[in-house]
Design a protein around this nucleic acid. Structure first.
Lengths: 328, 328
DNA sequence: TTGAAAGCGTTACCAG
DNA sequence: CTGGTAACGCTTTCAA
């Protein structure tokens, strides 16, 4: 059914070896036969089998990406950056999602290894504690975005979440806010833990009391923001500002505030985290902490590719910046 | 370096053939040897090569997906649905993005065919006019989401965009709005053309004048909404409602309205299209036309899989529904 | 400059 | 129930 190199060779009247070399533009093939082979290939609509090539070359020119879900705008942004960088280098992406389940994450890594990808990028890992087991068998290099793991076959690309959270709290306090609340993220997320850390650290550094009633749990969903705002209103005195685990949570606050008539930032200042594209479209536009997502995605790919070339590579850290808009 | 079936066979003291069958749980292999082989495989951390398997089986259990960009929430939603359905059926996704460039889209289809994917799903195609050329060489089945093409190897999954747009306009007119504007989408998008069609059709059906000054161009970006609102304010009398090509454009209207103090829906009613997740979080929450994205993604995969099994499959159509929230 | 043949890691057919 | 071997489609020595 599908035309193979053999067919091309036959049509051009040469051996498969020659046909292969001709199409690869091998130097020691006469221009004449090259022409003939190319012609034959074109006429037959020949499309080389990457599968067969991978088997002999022992490389697939494919990178595996595992992420929680592409519907998370932050993850999507990262996937986009990774796709761009990979594509530019001639690599294609095999995409698997974990839906936040450690088990699925590990299964994904395994599946990718079976497909012999040249490297794996895990965006916001959720199950690193299981990695040591699987890494005993997985032999491809792994790059973790937003997590670290001490293992010879693992490197990381990190945003400094602690510094980012500190930045936000300091900004709020400088603005005069004194009762700064925090809405956390999933406990399985390293970023969430670090942001919480940055929050408490900043408060301490600025000699402000740490009030546990001002710290709300969350899963990074808008729903968590809505709920937290409701809970905040029951506290006396209520917080005058809130740092959210992510922008989505901040949207929840904004939506609920709008519904309740709570004025932002007059009654309550809010700062998000991630600076996803919609954050400049909220009413009011969201002040938030940004990560250099694009650079992080590019770096993840670059790390993997340099690593494969045998170069020594090391984990990379990026600073966060504050994007001042209208909610604080 | 990496352990192959040969190693497993050796360790278990059987032939590769037997090892292969044992791991495949072939019926005519003694339980004893199965155990021995499995044990050996486990001890060596054997991971079968999907590449080698694909070569002999002539199938990759991989589906190719090409989309404009995963950062478009609508596309992301579709990719998610496709991933879920594919994953459930034991298929993995090879993801390529076109960034709206017909050339890249065609190149992507070609690349996927070279990788011998079992089927290709193109989300919101941008270059179908070039398909006939490439389809002469591409042999895998193609499913188009949001476009059609009359070709034996192509099927489609469609939302009825015209009906959706009509629904929205009728809803507005029923509510008493009389000067309904429309902000369009990219001319390369079939959905955009159909939505415009539905808009004019509905106006005509309701015997309302078609005013070309009320039809604004756009690319589906928030920016287009912002710009359109500014332009609308210069018209006398200004429109009292607007149907947007998509939710993103509607966000632009909302953001600009907030900045200008234009009240929604009192001064201007707004309806979006796509019902992406954020639309329930805008202030006010966005009234919008929804497509059954989940079902569409699942259907795209089901179509492809049934097709491969040799069943006769046909293009599927879905109706849109109106999600009433607070902007109209 | 070209060809024959080995080999990549599997599966599947044919014997035994 | 098990083993030998061909085959999948390509690249890459090794020879000529």
């Amino acid at each position: 059914m599908t035309v193979s190199l053999k067919d091309v060779a036959q049509k051009a009247g040469v051996s498969v070896a020659t046909a292969s070399r001709a199409l690869a533009d091998h130097p020691r093939i006469s221009e004449a036969t090259k022409q003939r082979v190319r012609q034959a290939a074109a006429e037959l609509g020949y499309m080389p089998s990457a599968i067969a090539r991978s088997l002999v070359k022992q490389e697939t020119r494919t990178l595996g990406v595992v992420t929680t879900t592409v519907t998370d705008p932050y993850a999507a942004e990262l996937v986009r950056a990774v796709e761009d960088a990979a594509g530019a280098a001639g690599y294609t992406l095999l995409l698997l999602t974990s839906h936040n389940l450690p088990r699925r994450e590990v299964a994904a890594i395994r599946a990718l290894q079976e497909r012999r990808v040249d490297g794996i990028i895990v965006i916001s890992p959720r199950g690193v504690e299981h990695y040591p087991d699987i890494l005993a068998h997985v032999t491809v290099p792994l790059v973790l975005v937003n997590h670290t793991l001490d293992h010879p076959r693992v490197r990381s690309v990190m945003a400094d979440n602690r510094q980012g959270a500190r930045l936000a709290v300091e900004y709020l306090v400088d603005l005069g806010y004194r009762r700064v609340a925090f809405i956390g993220g999933p406990t399985t997320s390293r970023s969430a833990r670090e942001r919480l850390h940055g929050y408490t650290e900043a408060l301490r550094a600025m000699e402000l009391p740490l009030d546990s009633r001002l710290m709300f749990p969350g899963q990074g969903r808008a729903e968590d923001g809505r709920r937290a705002l409701l809970a905040m209103l029951d506290i006396t005195p209520p917080p005058d500002a809130v740092l959210c685990y992510n922008d989505l949570t901040a949207y929840g606050i904004l939506a609920q505030a709008w519904a309740l008539g709570v004025r932002v930032p007059d009654d309550l200042a809010v700062i998000g985290f991630d600076n996803i594209p919609f954050s400049e479209l909220t009413a009011p536009p969201l002040t938030t902490v940004a990560q250099p997502t694009e650079a992080m995605g590019h770096t993840a790919v670059a790390l993997l590719l340099r690593w494969r070339r045998g170069e020594a590579v090391d984990t990379v850290h990026f600073d966060c910046t504050l994007v001042e808009r209208a909610t604080a």
